[in-house]
Design a protein around this nucleic acid. Structure first.
Lengths: 203, 203
DNA sequence: TAGGATACCTACCCATGAGTATGATAGACC
DNA sequence: GGTCTATCATACTCATGGGTAGGTATCCTA
């Protein structure tokens, strides 16, 4: 039921999906849907919760691990990425508070905030235990979550990479950053266009 | 006009904003709005284009610069971040193809793809000229764009940081990555919880 | 000062889609 | 064989909101 809703929201967006569409996918009629749920927004909410629970679970899991915070963070990010690439990713990421009643909206916000705080905490711990380079935990958490959330916007099942592979690739990028490291083969090219800067950088 | 629409979409989302709302903000009535635009979706489209043009401009600008590709990329990312933090950020980022007619949807997709390709190209060039650490250009571009796009979801004008400041913070994060670098003071703590790993990492 | 263009209004139409009233079928249990 | 409950359908109601028909006031120009 909620899975059918998730798949349909995925395809056409929340507002462009009618309950008749969802009913049609299940090969029943609209009143049957209302036999199981009380409203369309409840459907969206359930989809959201289903997806988000996986991430919350991962946050709880890593508490028990005796690992540097960066590795615990990576584990959470991997689960996060897979969750966003799942059929509930769309709902998790795109469930706007505008689409929900104030009560449910508060609930959604609370869950999102909890995850955000977990990530920030892991970053802070990582800075303390030396496994993460000092940075602004808030901005960094936003950057990480944003990159992963965005997966829901471009990823579709038929893609060549699995959710896990994407998550892994992202973790690698986050860890390393773009700047070349000493001791890594980087083609050692003599920076072709980099002779000088005749114009100032905009901004 | 399109600015008013953008602000209203920002507040309540596209589908939850009626043309009466937009008209009310301008202190006119709905037919007046239709005097200037032909449809609601055209309004969304115009907002989108307005925001995206800034980024396209930045992509063109940096072509002229004689700088390592990483610096040119950073310049684009800064403009990108500021654009997303602007009043048109919401429309740029959230304009779903589901909400637009096939023709406009194609147009939107083409513009988005153009920017995506520009970023990938800069990454490839950076890897070649040695200013960017070897990585998967496609995934990296997705990660960068995702992190920046996500700004539109959480940033609101009254925030303490300006769009430029956020963009700058993000560029720093992307460049450095999370891993601590040799020679940087990182509290040099003896990785407190990191004695051993009694449990396997999930996944 | 007539004619037209610009900018705006009041009052409507109508398709869509969320949600419901009411009743049918089919198995379970007595 | 009756009735009770779970499951589902037909056939509605009704608010919302995109879009339009047709008219008016202002102002510019000839």
């Amino acid at each position: 039921m909620i899975r059918a809703a998730a798949l349909e929201f995925n395809r056409k967006g929340y507002h462009n999906t009618s309950l008749d569409d969802i009913a049609a996918r299940l090969e029943v009629t609209k009143p049957t849907v209302y036999y199981y749920v009380t409203s369309k927004e409840q459907l969206l909410f359930e989809c959201f919760v289903t997806g988000v629970e996986r991430i919350r679970g991962a946050c709880r899991e890593v508490r028990r691990l005796e690992l540097p915070a960066r590795e615990r963070l990576n584990a959470v990010l991997r689960q996060y990425g897979e969750a966003v690439a799942s059929e509930f990713g769309w709902c998790m990421v795109r469930a706007e508070q505008d689409d929900l009643s104030p009560a449910m909206s508060r609930h959604v916000k609370a869950l999102k905030s909890e995850i955000d705080q977990s990530i920030r905490r892991l970053i802070r711990e990582g800075i303390q235990d030396g496994s993460i380079h000092p940075c602004d935990p808030k901005m960094t958490a936003f950057a990480l979550a944003g990159a992963l959330n965005w997966i829901a916007h471009w990823y579709r099942e038929d893609q060549s990479m699995s959710g896990a592979q994407i998550a892994e690739a992202f973790v690698t990028i986050f860890e390393a950053g773009l700047r070349p490291r000493a001791g890594t083969p980087t083609e050692a090219a003599p920076r072709r266009r980099a002779r000088r800067a005749p114009t100032a950088l905009p901004r």
